Amino acid sequence: MTARRSLIRRSALVASTAVTALVLAACGGSGSSGSSGSSGHDMGSMDSSSSPATTAAASPSAGAHNAADVTFAKQMIPHHRQAVEMADLATTRAASADVKTLATRIKGAQDPEIKTMSTWLTSWGEPLPQEMQGMDMSAGMPGMMSAGDMDRLKKGSGAAFDAMFLQMMVQHHQGAVEMANTEKAQGQFGPTKELANAVVTAQTSEITQMNKLLDKN
């Protein structure tokens, strides 16, 4: 009986020692894991609260783009700005309600697109095109009006303004469609290509509408 009790005590001591070892190992593992987990959590927190520049660099908009995407945005922004300037003139100089409605729609579509493209350029670390109202940029992009064209449009009014506006805006839209088709063929960034496709669709439709209005005059 004494030998049996001694054996039982020895077995209990061994089991207790083993359990203690397991607990200590578990605590050590938990501490290490907790530290790693805590570190991972902290890294996650840092990622989610990182600076805008870091976030932009890691975002899709900062990555999957190419030179064609950058060129499209840099050229289409001033192109759109001029279209908006022309549309603004129509609000006070046009005689036709159809022309005024068209001008309002053009401005309503292109103003937000300017903001969108500006956001892309910023996220790509590219400078935004400067405001260059009054300067002649007709040689740089297809469909752009010259400084002389804009001066004539500013001096027009009534039916004469309507005809001039429609003729110039048809040419302007044709240039935008050409630029957008180049982006569709050569660009890489999905949202930029989608915008280019939307430009082709909307402005092709508006060209048809403007040509019909010109035929009425």
Rank of each mutant, 00 (worst) to 15 (best):
M1I: 10
A3C: 05
A3D: 13
A3H: 11
R5P: 08
L7F: 06
I8S: 08
I8V: 14
V14E: 04
S16T: 12
A21T: 05
A21C: 10
V23A: 09
C27I: 12
S30D: 03
G31E: 05
S32M: 13
G37D: 14
G37A: 13
D42T: 09
M43G: 11
M46C: 02
P52M: 11
A53H: 11
A57Y: 10
S59N: 10
A62Q: 12
G63W: 03
N66P: 09
A68Q: 14
D69Q: 07
T71C: 05
A73Y: 03
Q75E: 11
M76K: 06
E85P: 00
E85F: 01
D88Q: 13
L89C: 05
A95H: 10
S96N: 11
S96D: 15
T104I: 04
I106L: 04
I106Q: 00
K107P: 00
A109C: 02
E113M: 03
M117T: 06
T119W: 03
T119L: 10
T122I: 15
T122W: 06
S123L: 11
L128H: 13
P129Q: 14
P129M: 09
P129H: 10
Q130A: 14
D136I: 14
D136E: 10
M137K: 12
M137L: 11
P142T: 05
A147C: 06
A147I: 05
M150C: 06
D151E: 12
L153V: 02
G156F: 03
G158Y: 01
G158L: 05
G158P: 07
A160G: 14
D162V: 04
M164R: 11
F165D: 05
L166T: 13
M169H: 03
H172D: 04
H173I: 07
Q174S: 10
Q174N: 06
G175P: 03
T182S: 13
E183T: 08
A185D: 08
Q188L: 15
F189H: 15
T192V: 09
V199S: 03
V200T: 04
V200D: 04
Q203F: 01
E206T: 14
Q209G: 02
Q209H: 07
Q209S: 13
L214K: 06
K216E: 13
